[in-house]
Nucleic acid binder design. Structure first.
Length: 301
DNA sequence: TTCCAGGAGAGAG
DNA sequence: CTCTCTCATGGA
């Protein structure tokens, strides 16, 4: 199946920007598990996406779902125009044009970012794979083998010890607690999807092991709240070094960021994060000059 | 060996 | 409110 009418999209940047931990690149295509099915995605040209899956019943319904997952329904150009307020972020945007903020499955996102605390991306990926191998279901597509993300029920029944034995460390009881709470319907995922950003964040922070940063990740990477701003060590570093030029609190960073970048701060954050992660020179002195705003037409990659 | 990673919670002040 | 310490684990 091919979708050939997309624009302002880069599969690589989208899937390799630390928002999802479930995609693997093999040659020039990406394999992942979404909604319990293996997907193979491949971007041949800027406008064409090749999709293969073990089970596509209705192409129209599937396309609709995929557009939502990859956030292709949004007008990326106007979002990036809105947040391109200085030369620094302009460089990040130019560099990673086409990176989208995904709308991932809610439970998987909650679980993944509970595991992400005080952890690095590679190890988070390994943890999730181990958990899926142990508590998910084995699936196969064209010789590619993977596992579905464990359901809340599966993890709740497994217990803390079993989760701990996967190498989750002290996060085991947080993950188990969230799984149990959802299984017991003390937290209703469908209801969570209908809340505003502020309401959803507050509700998520009632879970043990979910603080402000993780709640913001869930709001941004699953619930589509683009005003969410996850402040991790990198974002803190960037704002302290580039924008505020002093050591400061997340409260001040948050206030400044909304004020400065506006309602699409979530997208701005993702470009700044990925730019810093992939550029050892992100804080070089010449990059501190923000004045030189180059308004160029970034219509194409 | 020590430090760090898409942090959060508990306690102290 | 803000600081500080601790919590597993593995890679650099």
């Amino acid at each position: 199946m091919v979708i050939d009418n997309i624009s302002d999209f880069c599969l690589k940047y989208t899937l390799e920007s630390g928002q999802s931990f479930r995609w693997s690149r093999i040659d020039d295509s990406y394999y992942g598990v979404v909604n319990g099915k293996i997907l193979r995605l491949q971007q041949k040209t800027t406008s064409a996406l090749i999709i293969e899956s073990s089970c596509i019943e209705d192409e129209r319904v599937f396309t609709e779902f995929l557009f939502h997952y990859l956030d292709l329904n949004r007008d990326l150009a106007s979002i990036l125009n809105a947040v391109r307020v200085d030369g620094y972020i302009a460089k990040a945007i130019e560099h990673f044009w086409g990176m989208r903020v995904l709308n991932q499955e809610l439970w998987e996102t909650i679980a993944s970012f509970i595991l992400s605390q005080n952890n690095n991306i590679k190890r988070i990926r390994n943890l999730i794979r181990t958990l899926a191998e142990k508590f998910g279901e084995k699936i196969e597509f064209n010789g590619y083998i993977d596992y579905t993300f464990p359901t809340p029920k599966a993890l709740a029944e497994a217990g803390i010890e079993e989760i701990f034995s996967c190498g989750t460390g002290y996060r085991a009881r947080y993950l188990w607690g969230a799984a149990a709470k959802i299984t017991k319907k003390e937290l209703l995922l469908d209801k969570l999807k209908r809340l505003t950003y502020t309401e959803a964040k507050k509700e998520l922070m009632n879970l043990e092991g979910v603080g402000e940063k993780v709640a913001d990740c869930i709001c941004l990477f699953s619930l589509g709240h683009l005003e969410a701003l996850p402040i991790d060590v990198w974002i803190k570093r960037i704002f302290e070094r580039i924008y505020l030029q002093k050591k400061t609190s997340v409260t001040e960073i948050r206030q400044f960021a909304y004020d400065y970048f506006g309602e699409y701060i979530g997208y701005a954050q993702q470009y700044l994060f990925h730019y810093a992660q992939n550029n050892d020179n992100w804080a070089a002195p010449e990059k501190l000059a923000l004045k030189d705003i180059n308004i160029v037409n970034y219509d194409k990659m």
